[in-house]
Each structure stands twice: as C-alpha cells, then as structure tokens.
Amino acid sequence: MADTLHAYRHVQGIYFPIAIGVFAVIIAALLVLLVRGARRSRPAAARSQALAFEVAYALLLTGVVAVLLWVTFTAETPLDRTAAHPALQIKVTAAQWSWRIEYPNGATVTAVSTWHPPVALVPTGVEVEIVGTSRDVIHGFWLPQLHFQRQFLPGYVTRFDLRFDTAGLYDGECSVFCGDQHSQMHFQLRAVSPAMFQQWLFSHASRTGTAR
C-alpha cells in the first residue's frame, strides 16, 4: 500500500511532537540553570562528572532512537516497494524543462515550462505506478500534497506507486535544480473517480498533443 500521504502524516505525528517536547524540556532546564546561576555569588561545590548518570542517559537516548527507527522503517518499507500488479501504469519523462505524461493507450499530456500546466487525470483509490526517467539532467517529481517525491535520472528508469485518496487538483513541482527554467517546471494532476478517469482517457487518446 503506497499511501504516501498517510505514511507522512503518521510519522510526522510522532516525530514532530517528540522534537517539540525535547526542545521544551531542554529549554526549561536551561532557564532554571540560568536563573539560579545568575543569582549565585560564587560557584557552588559540584561534581565534575557523573558517569553512571551519563551511561543511563545514553541508554535512554538509544531507546528513543530505537523507537524512532521502528516507526520510520515500518512506514518506509511499503513506500519503497512497488505493487506487482498496479491498477494503472503511467510513464513520465522529464526533460529540461518539461514533463511528458504518457498513458497506456498512448494518450499524452505535456507541460512545457509553464506556471499553468495542462491537467493530467489520475483515478482515485487505486495504486498508480509511475515509471519515470529523464532525458537529460536529474529532475525531481514532487507532489507536495502527497508529501512524496522521487528523482528521475537520465538513462535509468525509476518506479514508485502513488495513491490519490481524495479527488481534486494536485500541483506538481520539479524539486531538483535542473537549470535556468527549473522554476517553470510545473505539472498538474487531477484525481477523479475511476469511471470519470476511464472516460477522459478514452476521449483524450484521440486528442493527444502538447498544450501550453
């Protein structure tokens, strides 16, 4: 199940609160030490080390690391896998500075260096396999709303699965700097019900062409 959106939200829901909590605890400790230290007129007698405490603390931190890694690894494994029989396979070819999105029936949507790219449709609720490559330099296929990106390498085919649970528009960016018109390399996907998608795919096959 390549549910990138929920994987991100799940991991974020654990990492972000822990990070904020750790920050708060350390800052609180720091403030207490600063207030007390500012008031003192001379340094108080104090140990200069506490090895047992440090070892215990290191073990505690190791435990926290183990928990974080377990959360990360279990969330990541399905994201890195591709389904054996995806419902749909879409070929995406990146080039300086365009995206060509090709469907199994030959229908194509091409976005060339524009802030207002033509819309390519995808079906909701199923595994969509993206088969991507680049024609020249490294580009990055990024859908911020799905919290997922993958780099497209020249001369190499990369595969990953996406799942669009919610219908609507998804903005696509090129995330990897690729030259002068990197900032124009946008694409756009619209997720619609599988039935609407089939309709569009059938009619689009006979009207294929580039759009600006």
């Binding site: 990138t4 994987a7 991991v11 969330a75 890195d80 990106q149 993958r150």
Partner: peptide, 11 residues
C-alpha cells in the same frame, strides 16, 4: 526519516 524526507527534501 525517509518517509518525512520524501515530503520535505529540496524544500
């Protein structure tokens, strides 16, 4: 964490 980096890399 790769699942988070997939969303945040290059941003």
């Amino acid at each position: 964490s790769p699942p988070l980096d997939y969303g945040l890399n290059m941003s």
